Simulated scan of single mutants.
Amino acid sequence: MSLNVFLSGEIHTDWRQQIMQGARELGLDITFSSAVTDHDSSDAAGDVLGAESNPFWRDHKSAKVNAIRCKTLIEQCDVAIIRFGDKYKQWNAAFDAGYCAALGKPYITLHGEDIIHPLKEVDGAAMAWAQTPDQVVELLQYITRNA
């Protein structure tokens, strides 16, 4: 089975690379996509539409431009992996999870045990909760396995 997997969330660690490498090593037929993970580029996505003196409007424009990419990729994916990291709160990841749930797209959450409580609703709609990228790779291997 071939899968299109959207990787959403935290951008400060190499979890995406670990999952993609693990899938590659197992020869899984998976195409990965993601939001823009370069923080400065993401923040500047709307700058092409004109300079803003108020940071709210700069963020507003960039969020909308970034949403074009994310909404399209989520709509096209077969499954999403939603990563919540330790360093920052990933409101964008929670939004992506909600969008997946609204579309009926299956998603897997990836986060540590220490944030189970604040993510109870997000995890409640997820098809699985993983704590490590290796667990995600094992899930993807199972999902794509030919019976």
Rank of each mutant, 00 (worst) to 15 (best):
A130S: 11
Y99T: 11
A125G: 03
E121I: 15
K61A: 00
C100M: 09
D114I: 11
G46Y: 02
A80P: 11
A102H: 15
A102I: 10
I115Y: 09
A45F: 02
D43C: 13
A93N: 06
Q76E: 08
A67C: 05
T72G: 00
E75S: 08
V122A: 10
A80I: 04
D96C: 05
Q90I: 10
A102C: 14
A67Q: 03
D134R: 15
I68F: 03
H60M: 11
K61I: 05
Y99A: 11
F84N: 09
A97V: 01
C70F: 03
G46H: 02
G85R: 06
C77V: 06
I108C: 04
D40I: 12
A94G: 12
E52R: 14
W57A: 03
C100R: 05
A97L: 09
A128F: 04
Y88W: 14
K120W: 14
A101L: 13
E52P: 07
V48Y: 12
D43A: 15
P118C: 09
G104W: 07
Y99F: 15
D59E: 07
K120C: 13
K61G: 08
A94K: 07
Q135G: 12
W91N: 14
A126G: 01
W57Y: 14
L49M: 10
D123A: 10
S41V: 11
G85L: 01
A44Q: 00
F84C: 02
Q135I: 01
A126R: 08
I82Y: 09
G50D: 09
L119Y: 07
K89C: 11
E113D: 11
P55E: 00
F84V: 09
A63K: 07
F56P: 01
G124L: 05
W91M: 12
E52Y: 07
D123C: 10
A128P: 01
Q76V: 02
T109H: 08
H39V: 14
G98R: 07
Q135K: 13
A125V: 06
I74H: 00
A125T: 05
D123Y: 05
D86L: 03
K87W: 08
D96P: 01
Y99W: 15
G112W: 04
C100F: 04
R69C: 00
L73T: 09
C70M: 11
I82K: 01
V48H: 14
P106K: 12
A102T: 14
A93L: 04
A51Y: 11
A63E: 04
A128C: 04
A63P: 05
C100P: 06
I116L: 15
V122W: 05
D123T: 03
W129L: 13
Y107H: 04
D114K: 15
C70L: 09
N66D: 01
R58E: 07
A93T: 01
H117F: 15
N54Q: 07
A101E: 13
C70P: 00
D43F: 14
A67G: 05
K71V: 13
D47R: 12
A67K: 05
D43G: 07
A125Y: 04
H111D: 09
A45K: 00
Q135L: 07
I81Q: 05
A44N: 11
G50I: 02
K71F: 10
E121Y: 15
D86K: 14
P106H: 10
G85T: 03
Y88I: 06
K71R: 10
N92L: 11
R69P: 04
P55G: 05
F95P: 07
G50R: 06
